[in-house]
Every structure is written in structure tokens, then in C-alpha cells.
Simulated assay, not measured.
Amino acid sequence: MSAPMTTIETVTITRPLKVIAFICGNIVVILLIMALTSTDWLLSSGWRQGLFTHCIEDLTQPIPFNYEAKEEGCYPSRDVFYIKATAGLCILSLVTDVIATILTGIGLHTKNQNIKYKFYRRAVLIMLVALIAVLVALIMYPLCFSGELSLGNRPIWEFGWAYGVCWGAAIFLFGGVILLLCDKESEEIYFKERKIVHNTQLQT
């Protein structure tokens, strides 16, 4: 004879929104590090300017911004407020994004729903600080540069790829904030149960 035996299997499904926010946070870290270490924020003929270093590549032309140099090469950044402020804001954005990303990762890992949402709430606030910091830096940099354009000694200036990468970081930060805010009141993890019937042989 055989008798049916019923077992219950629990399937756990994690929503992807917070996972994507966590990925966005990691992408922002990479982009901001690239932007901070690059000298391609501001470009012109024979001149490359970053947040910590600028490079002179042609001494046959007048050096921009009344800078004095005897040979070609890279030098520490000019002692100008907007360059230092932009660098400081980008570093602030990087540090706060790292903290927010770590908090998001902890929230994804923990199973306690109350603790999970506490981490998410803190992460979204900290990531919002990172977003505001990088946006202020991106707006301030070109505005302040335009004030010293008359000292540029060049007819053409353009913003380099590092400035664009920083805008990319801002876009991913915005996406991360939105994703962390989405569905914050609903369950992050779904539990689905299904019954499985097994036939077992009974010995007589």
C-alpha cells in the first residue's frame, strides 16, 4: 500500500530594485575615482587641468592663468578656490557614496525586516548627500572657470572626459536614490509556499 506524504517548500524571492541601487553605488565609486585621478577636466592647446594636477605640454605658447613654469610636465594644481572646492566636494561625494553603498549591502544581506529598512533609510539619506555634493561641484566648476577665462591665453577651451565621467556618477547616484526610495513600504522579500505530494510505500 502507499500513502501520500505532503511537504511544504518555501521559495524566497528578492526584489531587484535595491540590488540595482547597490550596483549603482559601486559604479559611482569607480567613476568618481576615475574623475579624481584624471588631469582631463579642462583642456586646451598644450594645457590639461585636473583637480590635483595640471600638465603643461607646450611652452612655445603663453602659459594660461599667469602660471610660471620653466619646463613641460605636470605640476600640483593651482591654488584656486574653485578647483580645491570641487576636489573636496567630489571626495565628500565618494566617501558618502561608499558609506551608502555599504549600508545598502548590509540591508540586502540581513533577514530582519525592521533592521533592513533602517539601513535603507540611512543609505538613501547619505546617498542624497553624495548626489548634492557632486552636483554642486559640477555646477560650480564651469561657472568659476568662466570668471578667469580672460586669463586663459587660449581661444578654445573644452571640458574633458573626466568632467563628463563625473556627470555620469551624478546620474548613477540619482538612479540609486530613486531605487532606494521606490516601494519602501512594501516587503522586500516575498515568501511563497507550495505543497509537494510524495507517494511512499507502506510495508505490511
Rank of each mutant, 00 (worst) to 15 (best):
Ala35Asp: 01
Leu92Thr: 13
Leu202Asn: 07
Asn112Asp: 06
Cys74His: 12
Ala3Trp: 14
Leu181Lys: 03
Leu108Gln: 00
Thr10Arg: 15
Asp79Val: 05
Asp79Ser: 02
Ile20Trp: 08
Ile126Leu: 06
Ile178His: 09
Tyr141Ser: 04
Val197Ala: 12
Gly147His: 13
Ile115Gln: 15
Lys184Ala: 12
Trp157Leu: 04
Thr110Arg: 06
Cys24Gln: 03
Trp161Ile: 08
Leu143Val: 14
Thr86Ala: 04
Thr10Gly: 13
Val29Lys: 01
Val11Cys: 02
Cys74Leu: 07
Ile30Pro: 13
Asp183Gln: 10
Thr6Ser: 04
Cys182Ile: 12
Thr39Leu: 00
Trp167Glu: 05
Ala87Tyr: 13
Val197Leu: 11
Phe22Ala: 06
Asn114His: 10
Phe52Asp: 10
Arg48Glu: 09
Trp47Ile: 07
Arg154Trp: 14
Arg121Gly: 13
Leu138Cys: 03
Asn66Met: 06
Gln49Arg: 08
Lys118Leu: 10
Tyr117Phe: 11
Val95Arg: 09
Ile27Glu: 03
Pro155Ala: 00
Asp183Ser: 15
Leu179Met: 15
Lys195Ser: 05
Ile27Asn: 06
Ile178Thr: 09
Leu143Ala: 13
Thr104Ser: 15
Ile102Asn: 06
Cys74Trp: 12
Leu179Trp: 13
Pro76Leu: 00
Tyr117Trp: 15
Leu108Tyr: 06
Arg121Glu: 10
Gly176Ser: 12
Gly168Thr: 07
Glu9Lys: 15
Leu138Val: 10
Asn153Met: 14
Phe174Lys: 00
Lys118Pro: 03
Met140Tyr: 11
Asp79Trp: 10
Ala162Tyr: 14
Ile56Met: 13
Leu51His: 10
Ala35Thr: 03
Thr110Phe: 01
Asn114Ile: 02
Ile23Val: 08
Met127Thr: 05
Leu180Tyr: 08
Ile171Asn: 01
Val165Pro: 01
Glu148Trp: 13
Gln49Phe: 06
Cys74Gly: 00
Gly88His: 08
Leu32Met: 02
Asp58Phe: 09
Leu149Gln: 11
Leu36Asp: 04
Ala123Pro: 00
Lys84Asn: 05
Trp47Met: 09
Val98Cys: 00
Pro62Glu: 06
Tyr141Trp: 07
Phe52Asn: 09
Pro155Asp: 11
Val11Ala: 01
Leu89Gln: 08
Cys90Tyr: 15
Arg78Ala: 06
Pro4Met: 02
Arg154Phe: 13
Glu158Ile: 02
Val165Gly: 07
Lys18Cys: 11
Val129Gln: 12
Thr39His: 02
Phe81Asp: 15
Ala169Asn: 00
Pro76Cys: 00
Ala123Met: 04
Lys111Asn: 13
Leu94Ala: 00
Lys18Pro: 11
Trp157Asp: 06
His54Gly: 06
Val29Ile: 05
Pro62Asn: 07
Met1Glu: 05
Leu94Pro: 04
Leu31Cys: 01
Lys192Gly: 03
Tyr141Glu: 04
His54Ser: 06
Pro155Lys: 03
Thr14Asn: 15
Thr39Val: 04
Thr53Arg: 05
Ser38His: 05
Gly50His: 03
Ile33Cys: 11
Arg154His: 04
Ala137His: 03
Ile171Tyr: 11
Lys195Arg: 12
Thr96Leu: 01
Gly175Ser: 10
Val29Ala: 02
Val134Ser: 12
Lys195Thr: 09
Gly25Ile: 03
Val136Ile: 14
Thr12Arg: 14
Ile156Thr: 10
